[in-house]
Write a protein that binds this DNA or RNA. Sequence first.
DNA 1: CGAGCTCCTG
DNA 2: CAGGAGCTCG
Length: 641
Amino acid sequence: MNLSLSDQSMHTSSEGYLEEEKGELLHPCFRRSVYDDSLTTYSKGSIISQLLRKTIQNKRVLEDNLFYLPATAVSSSTMADSSQEDRSSNSSKESMAEPASPGSHPSVTASPQADRPLNEHHQAKRARVENIIRGMAGSPNARIPGEGERSEADGRDARDAYRENKRKQRLPQHQEHGPDGGPGGSRGGSGSKEEECQRLKEQLQTMQRLLRQLQEKFVQVYNLSDSEQEDREEVGPAGSMEHEDVEHNKEPFEGSDSELHRDLDSDFEKRMDSTKAVRRETVKTSGHFAFHKDSKNLPETLKYELSRAVSESVDLVFKKFSSTLSPQLKMGQISAHVNIGPEKKTQISCVQEQPHNEDAIKTRSREYYESAEVQIPEDQTEALSLVVRKPPLSHPSSVNQVVKRPYPVHQAPFQFSYSTPLHENQILEHLLKYGPHGNFGGLPCLPPAVDRSSPDSVDLPWDTISVRPKVSSTQMAHHARPTALGQEGLTPNHLKKAKLMFFYTRYPSSNVLKTFFPDVKFNRCITSQLIKWFSNFREFYYIQMEKFARQAIVDGANDVKDMSVTRDSELFRSLNMHYNKANDFQVPDRFLEVAEITLQEFFNAISLAKDTDPSWKKAIYKVICKLDSDVPDDFKSSNCV
DNA sequence: CGAGCTCCTG
DNA sequence: CAGGAGCTCG
């Protein structure tokens, strides 16, 4: 893996920067496929802690050795790929702490901060970085969908091959992304520890490399705009920017991103502040560079443009991180889609609820970005993707939709509410490549083919990112890439979606399944698996019904009217726990009705001693299967969950 | 005969 | 939740 950071981090001349970007060019796309998986797996605080500790140690050594030259002294030649091998180990570890202070390196020899008590400072840094990573990891259940499963599946497959080569033979193949990825799945395999560690490292490297690149750009900007310092008073309107970071904890971006930002050395912060000041200048002058005293030539102009773009990018990035650091905020943001169904909450609602501590950021952002699209990245991409991809069709659900909406506040999105480290990573990448307005489009860091289709379009790249989030949702194992139709196998995400669909339909036809799993390449195996899922759902459902019906009878109930199902019912809780474990989905009232009918059917049958007939349940099944509702169109979106 | 279902088992 | 047996149905 060409993930070495140290080789690439210290370029300040535009040449060096360009070279670096070229060198990195291939990675983002490659990395996406390779690292997406591991992004969801950061839950091992201990590992992180360990890595960070090593990192800090190494970093100290590196600093002492002046491994990092002052930014201004570095030329593009330091970036030779061939040198990576030697340093990769160092740099990879070193990079672990990089997000905290890469920006400081260039000035480390001259900066007063270099003298401060490293120990304490690094400790604090480590803790903060750990926090950040944990926050980004999000999922407590995150696990590594690993090769172990594959081999296991293959093993089953092999066994099955001896028995029959027909229908179900290949099912196991497609279960590699299946329920194993669920919360209970503990079959990770023993060898995965190291893999996990490795992935963790790589992932951290990736993130940190991105951060470093951002920060380098800031440094670069700073150097370019050094002479503009006096213009700082212009920052006034920007509010918190006024706060000079006399204390190193002061952060211009305030809010919940503090942890992240505090990790930037104050030196770096100053640069950012100055950068922003300059940028504001630029904005004010409406793109004229007149105030740029020394902007007489093209290179300067280009550099300035670049710096401005970087500044804007970073604003967005920090906003993203801000959201990441406060997961509960995400809940609020995403929950917009909860009320799928009749009233069809619009996309607008997704944007409505803004995290409180992002207000300031957002306000400030608006000063810079007028267009609505810039706001889009703030909302988690799940919601966004619906906006983009939502199918036009939307016939209201059938007569059965007796649903009594609207529901209270805590509605459930059928998007996942977890923060998605993958997003941040991709957003970082994207910002590094494009800037929020695609400003980088003309620069050498041209995006890989797909993303490059329209460099002037802001939407496309964000869209590209936005349709992916599904992948990284907590239970999402890996590469359930909604963008790529024809993926193989069903993912835990699909499973969750199927469970939610069960609230509407207990007996979905295969056509329905195909309709509502558009991102699944259907074949016999997949279809069978999906059908099997619903069969299992039904099994659980009926078992519960029978159980509660019998219990009610035992408890002395003798009237069907006593058999009711409400959201407070034990029965409902049980069902909800099964199909909607995260409880982030508002179960339609219709399901309660159906459940009640089912319960009553069981109650009647048992009361009348029909259960002596071996096939007594069939009559009930026959009744229940007619009670299916239409699944809301929202489910048709391949990334609605 | 194959699809789809239930039931049982792991 | 998956596999498999056994059943029904078109």
